[in-house]
Design a protein around this nucleic acid. Structure first.
Lengths: 241, 241
DNA sequence: GCCCTGGCTGTGAGGGCGCTGAGAGCGGCT
DNA sequence: AGCCGCTCTCAGCGCCCTCACAGCCAGGGC
């Protein structure tokens, strides 16, 4: 199943802070890797924009150090691509000395901070820490349907003023519905998203969990946000029922 | 920019997407207004919380960009007031750099997303778009015939303002007709599409289901959208009867 | 007006679909 | 070890959907 609850601050166990360094100068990249590891970070390296973007997409990094001048795909394009995909991982850009690009470009492209080469290692670490410290902010927006709200990052759900406690499975199910309000989702589609891409089990689990959800988000409020569409699937009313 | 309502035929002429910016720093407000207008949004400005709240109440905005620090009425209070009135317009909050308030407060108060100053303009636009996309999901394929509407994704049918409940079979049948309005469909063709490619049964089912449909989509409205073409099949009037 | 053919509809059986309560398995926490 | 919460299976139940059937109605040709 999907580890939906990893990395959630309140989940408790400490997790290594993961940094991705995208830098084509091999010596600089390795120096950074060694240094940051010594600081206690988990560091991955990419030597071109393409693999950098790929890695940033796949793994959940806490920050990305991104050179501007890169083979295959410039740092700008990598950053822009990430932002376009609603990936708000904090990005610290490294510019060429005084290149054709300037700082404003970097920020316009969605970077969170900017450093011009040559830079002092100490400054880089300081800025990185600053980014991480205030990196709680780049969190995904809250989903809403009527007075139903779901905060994906905080794993919180509320209806009106009332907080609602959901189990991980229930939460994942509701999140799927809230990302596609007013759309009928078939049981197989639900199974594929909330359970596993090739889940081989009784589709009845879906009915069971829809039932659980209804008891928590609808019944106590006399609402009917989660609707059955017989023969087709289920639908979350975009107005919250 | 891309008109958010594209593909919704009955939406009539594309309506501008309206954004309200509530920001007391005049220069920032104007910069935002210029930038967002260049993106194709219709932008209104308020320089304090009171007029901001007033405007948000009066006009139907698609989103509100709301600074936290405002004269007369803080962004928090504005947002809380809107939510208390069951106004669920998407709100994007702009926090002071690292002020006394923090992000959690913003979300607790009912904001949908949160950005800390200084922010990158690109990120603001990206988040704004994300908010708009979520709140106004442009579900292109809505079929229409006169005042008859069928939304395949939502599995919903309506005539005028009235929602109509259809069984799966009825829905499939009507969908076939609405995809080919004004066209005469033979019973065998209908059987092949709505039932099974090689259905071996009484073609009378078609008559039966056409009857069911008429009782739901025509009779209550005194219309005749589903017409019999004796000896040939049935036709759905493209103008809804 | 009569007849024939094709279309319409009321009735009812049967079965599929969705809902729910009970409970077993599992893992985490104390 | 014991408890608790989460997940998921299973079986029973009830409703609604589907469809066959048969009798009735309407259109059109003569």
């Amino acid at each position: 199943m999907r580890p939906l609850s990893y990395g959630v601050p309140w989940a408790g166990q400490a997790r290594a802070v993961r940094i991705l360094v995208v830098e084509d100068e091999v010596r600089l990249a390795q120096a950074l890797q060694r240094g940051l590891r010594a600081e206690g970070f988990a560091v991955d390296i990419a030597h071109d924009g393409e693999t950098g973007l790929h890695l940033a997409r796949e793994a959940a990094y806490d920050a990305v150090v991104l050179d501007v001048m890169l083979p295959k795909l410039s740092g700008y394009r990598v950053c822009r691509a990430l932002r376009a995909e609603e990936n708000w991982v904090p990005v610290l850009m490294l510019s060429a000395k005084d290149g054709e690009y300037d700082q404003a470009d970097g920020l316009d492209v969605g970077a969170d901070d900017y450093l011009t080469k040559p830079f002092s290692y100490v400054v880089l670490v300081a800025r990185l820490r600053a980014l991480l410290r205030r990196s709680a902010p780049p969190r995904p927006p809250v989903l809403g349907a009527g007075d139903l709200r779901l905060d994906p990052a905080a794993h919180r759900v509320s209806r009106g003023q009332t907080q609602i406690a959901l189990t991980p499975r229930e939460f994942a199910l509701l999140e799927l519905f809230m990302r596609r309000p007013d759309e009928v989702l078939s049981k197989s589609e639900i199974l594929a998203h909330v359970w596993d891409a090739h889940y081989e089990g009784d589709p009845n689990v879906v009915e069971v969990y829809v039932g659980y959800l209804r008891r928590k988000i609808d019944a106590p409020f006399g609402r009917r946000a989660l609707q059955t569409v017989r023969g087709a699937g289920y639908r979350l009313a975009g107005n919250g029922g």
